[in-house]
Write a protein that binds this DNA or RNA. Structure first.
Lengths: 193, 193
DNA sequence: GTGCACTATATTGGTGCCAATTTTGGTGAA
DNA sequence: TTCACCAAAATTGGCACCAATATAGTGCAC
């Protein structure tokens, strides 16, 4: 239930600043009170929601400054990971990544925004997995949850999405050439758009 | 109470693999059951402890592989932060850092291992604060909790501690010279020891 | 003595209830 | 109207209890 709530929050299905009343959550997710409290505590420690004693939990939607900081963290981590990826990725990893990049591009004309978002996430996750650092994969996943998701802020234009897809392919090319510096440059631009 | 429990776990005051029984925690920290459950859920989402349904929470003490991964994450973040620190640190920040570095060295002959640990933490925290990224400070603090603390594994010898203190000064020097690359190199060596 | 089924105990997990606190709504006076 | 004040409703927080589950212990058959 914590995962579903997190997904709903990230998807913007709760208006900013709204209180998450335990009874509502109980009904919405068909959960008992214990599960609801667990999920709330968990998401609060992940800083997805905030807590005030005797008042409850509310969705915060980080201010722009903090969102920028978190985006910077992602740039730091994913560019630093490039060295590991270049060093450790097998040819099979690279082939798999190229397939995911192509799948992303293939979805552009027909897929829903959600499909495209999923494909993008799959590519980036696979890229991080190739670094061989499991903690890194988890960490970036958690950081992603704390920033507004793609449909809202990023990807404003179709042209931008198209370019994102091309950048995925460029990343795979740089990785195949074992060019860590180029890979870092593309990743940095890609995240900061 | 979650903080105290976290500190006790990190200090190794619970034997590895031992179950954290709610009643024991209730007595130990003079807390009610709700607080205990909150703390357990919170520390589990921070991956400080692990959870098995219908069995409870236990301290895990990450295996060496995962500890290495987390240490790598710290190197990634703190070296990447060097660019921001060099760009943003004020002369006042640098003076304050130098003072903290000297305070660390001053404690070596007389201070307890805990005092020295605190002084070390204060220096590193201040260094990260100078990057201007609040999320980064929090993130590294949480990552630190997941690795065995200094007294146990690192700082095996007095000579090593002494060297750590010198490296702190070198960091401040590199920062004052606005030499990001040198700062990164020292930080990387310092964390990986 | 060993293995197995069964019972007893311990621990977690869920539920209902009530107290404490906050919010909301309403009433009246300036 | 607008503000202060008070009462009513809603919500969280803590508590006690019971159910569900896992572990430990006991005795029995072989």
């Amino acid at each position: 239930m914590a995962d579903r709530l997190a997904a709903d929050i990230q998807a913007g299905r709760f208006s900013a600043g709204s209180w998450l009343k335990q009874i509502d959550l109980q009904n919405r997710y068909a959960a008992n009170r214990s599960e609801v409290r667990k999920a709330l505590v968990s998401l609060a420690t992940k800083r997805l929601i905030q807590y005030e004693p005797n008042r409850g939990y509310y969705v915060h939607h980080e201010d722009d400054a903090l969102s920028d900081e978190i985006r910077d963290l992602r740039v730091m981590l994913e560019t630093a990971a490039a060295d590991y990826i270049v060093a450790k990725a097998t040819v099979a990893d690279i082939a798999s990544l190229r397939q995911l990049a192509e799948q992303f591009l293939k979805l552009l004309p027909t897929g829903t925004i959600m499909d495209i978002y999923e494909a993008n996430l799959a590519f980036h996750t696979a890229l991080l997995v190739a670094s061989g650092n499991r903690a890194l994969v988890e960490l970036v996943r958690d950081l992603r949850l704390r920033t507004p998701p793609a449909p809202a802020s990023q990807w404003s234009t179709r042209a931008r999405i198209e370019q994102s897809g091309q950048e995925h392919l460029e990343m795979v090319d740089a990785l195949e050439a074992r060019n860590a510096e180029k890979l870092k440059a593309i990743i940095s631009l890609h995240i900061q758009q």
